[in-house]
Amino acid sequence: MRSLLIFLCFCSLSAFAQTSQLFDAGAKPKLVSNQFEFTEGPAVDRQGNIYFTDQPHNKIWKYDTNGRLSVFMDKAGRANGTYFDTKGNLIACADEHNQLWQISPQKKVKVLLEDYEGKLFNGPNDLWIDKYDNIYFTDPYFQRDYWTRNKSEMSGEKVFLLRKGQNKPILLDSMVKPNGIVGTPDGKHLFVADIGAGKIYKYDIKPDGNITNKRSFFTETADGITLDEQGNLYLAGKGVTIINPKGEKISHIDISEPWTANLCFGGKGRRTLFITASKAVYVIRMKVRGVE
């Protein structure tokens, strides 16, 4: 019994030490605003400004590095996940018509994709773009009340790659319900959250952009995901769960909302963790930088 207590105390101290390297002890997420219907898809530009979506209200919002909120775009294609490419375009999973959009800084929209082999996508959900502007995205089926259809045209729920300059996506993998997705900055590894299976998968990325060596990295039901400079993976869902590069849980951030949908690092120095959670958005100051 004594040895068990010593082991538990050691584990507790170890977890505290790892947490203290990420953010200050006692730090709590700060509410920015709760004026939304359902927040999602945060993405950060080169300056550290953060853009996020309020899908039911069909808007993309901007939270700038000075903490100011403003509407960036109305009639935003019911955008869900978003990500900036290297040219400053905001790429959006616009699932109003099951499309992938490119939104220029001047808010000009170009439809990049709307089908796979003649069949409508389920509804592009989240994405990650590598340093070469190759787009990796997930396509789960979540029935929307603004759709006229009530069933999928696809033979499953999948992960795709759209190579730079191409107009036909490449099927990478099938899952129960793929959702959050992020890759490492060196372009060697990809993480995908299968919210339907309650699993986080890790892949190796081959030189041609395809993926291989799929393995289970962590077991948890997660929505959006992101990475910090130490290689820790942040899972949105019931608050924020933080996993180290070995696939071990090292910390958790409680969020006082029914669901935490997504997150990204932004702000000056990329040390602000920005969290979209139900009708609200939160921030917490971190000791580590984000790498997206």
Rank of each mutant, 00 (worst) to 15 (best):
L120W: 12
Q106T: 14
E96Y: 12
N89K: 10
P105Q: 05
W128L: 07
K107C: 11
C93W: 01
D95S: 13
D115M: 09
Y136I: 05
Q102V: 05
C93G: 06
K110R: 14
D130R: 03
H97E: 15
D115Y: 05
G118K: 09
G88C: 12
D126Q: 07
C93V: 03
D130Q: 06
K107L: 12
F137C: 04
A92K: 12
P105C: 08
T138I: 03
G118L: 08
T138G: 01
G123D: 00
I129A: 08
L112V: 07
F137E: 03
L112F: 08
P140A: 01
E117L: 15
D130K: 06
P105N: 10
F121W: 07
K108L: 13
D133I: 07
N134Q: 09
V111F: 01
K107M: 11
P140N: 01
E96H: 13
N134C: 12
F121I: 03
A92I: 11
N125W: 01
G88Q: 09
W101Y: 14
Q99P: 07
L100G: 01
P124Q: 13
L112A: 11
W101S: 05
G123Q: 02
N122K: 02
Q106M: 14
T138F: 01
V111M: 09
A94E: 08
D95F: 12
E117K: 15
D130P: 05
A92D: 10
I129V: 08
N122W: 03
T138M: 02
K107Q: 14
L127I: 10
Y132S: 15
V111A: 02
Q102I: 06
W128R: 09
I103S: 11
L120N: 15
S104T: 14
D126Y: 02
K131S: 15
A94Y: 02
L112Q: 05
V109P: 04
N125R: 04
L112M: 13
K110S: 13
I129E: 05
V111S: 12
I91S: 04
L127D: 01
K131H: 14
I103Q: 03
D115W: 06
K119A: 08
P140C: 00
D133F: 02
T138P: 00
N89L: 05
S104F: 02
T138Q: 01
W101G: 08
A92H: 08
W101A: 09
I135H: 00
Y132G: 15
E117W: 13
I103D: 06
S104A: 09
K131R: 15
D133A: 07
Y116S: 11
D126P: 02
F121R: 07
W101I: 09
I91M: 10
K131D: 14
I135F: 00
N134I: 09
E117G: 12
I103E: 08
E114Q: 15
G88A: 12
L127E: 04
A94L: 06
Y136C: 07
C93H: 01
V109D: 11
S104N: 06
K108G: 11
I91C: 12
G118R: 13
E96A: 14
E96I: 10
Y132H: 15
T138V: 03
Q99M: 04
G88K: 11
P140W: 00
K110I: 08
N134W: 02
E96D: 14
D115G: 10
